[in-house]
């Protein structure tokens, strides 16, 4: 029964950690409502989370859209419904793959960087130094990162949706010779605004998850360089898990 016990301990630890992350989120919201907001810091984080993630997000989106077209075309061809490829690509990208893949990539890129930076600041006492100078570390360090995550994830997702759909169109029309007019009509006819909004709302939640989890891991780093490494890995793993778990529930509630 050792493994059952282990499973229990792991589960308790996971739930406890998620609770801590949520408490940190509430505290960060509280601090974000207290002026002044450091706009310089927010812009810097928006650049870090958003602008610098654009290339890798776009590459992922275009390849996903292209593969999606290629794969679904194979299936639909078997009952002569090739034009529905457009619908599948558009719905999959906006409702699901756009927000989720973007979030997973940003978690691996910007989330890891946040955890590593804050973790290093923790072990080198820079976070203590902030406190001693009467600058609240949550306000100074976490608030800008949370706001950047909330804002930039939906924006990146819009890019991702657009580029994914464009990639699908390119493959369907140029490679698989689907009629472009029919393809576009099938895309626009069945795609509703709610599909896009729902996806963006997901991205917004994922942005919160990435920023809060990564900052939480960074803030609670202990034990030098090794600790920073652990915090970084932990941040990516925990935010990815929470993204995937919350994705299911968001999908069930939203659509």
């Amino acid at each position: 029964m050792k493994w059952l016990e282990l499973l229990g301990v792991r589960t308790t630890k996971f739930i406890e950690e998620v609770g801590q992350v949520f408490l940190l989120f509430l505290q960060t919201i509280k601090w974000s409502l207290r002026p002044p907001l450091g706009f310089r810091n927010i812009l810097k984080q928006m650049e870090e989370v958003g602008v610098r993630s654009i290339p890798v997000v776009l590459i992922t989106a275009v390849s996903t859209g292209m593969v999606l077209a290629l794969q679904s075309h194979t299936g639909f061809k078997r009952f002569n419904a090739e034009s529905l490829v457009g619908t599948v690509v558009a719905l999959s990208m906006t409702r699901e793959l756009g927000p989720v893949l973007t979030a997973l990539i940003v978690a691996g890129r910007a989330g890891a960087a946040m955890a590593a930076e804050l973790g290093t600041m923790r072990v080198t006492e820079q976070i203590d130094a902030l406190s001693t100078m009467a600058a609240n570390p949550i306000k100074y360090l976490i608030v800008p990162r949370l706001l950047a995550g909330m804002l930039m994830l939906p924006i990146l997702t819009i890019f991702s949706d657009a580029i994914g759909i464009a990639g699908g169109y390119f493959v369907a029309v140029q490679v698989l010779n689907v009629n472009p007019v029919v393809y576009l009509r099938r895309t626009t006819d069945f795609l509703e605004y709610d599909d896009i909004y729902g996806g963006l709302l997901k991205a917004f939640v994922f942005g919160i998850i990435i920023a809060t989890v990564s900052c939480y891991k960074g803030f609670n780093t202990e034990g030098g360089a090794e600790g920073v490494g652990k915090a970084t890995t932990g941040a990516v793993v925990l935010s990815s898990m929470l993204i995937l778990i919350s994705d299911y529930f968001l999908t069930a509630i939203l659509f």
Partner: peptide, 26 residues
């Protein structure tokens, strides 16, 4: 805490800021 100044063991300078920004942080 505004009455305090603290010198940390390894100085704990903010490494994303220049020296003068560190000194002028408060």
């Amino acid at each position: 805490r505004k009455k305090f100044g603290m010198l940390f063991q390894y100085a704990a300078l903010f490494d994303s800021l220049m020296v003068w920004e560190n000194v002028g942080f408060s």
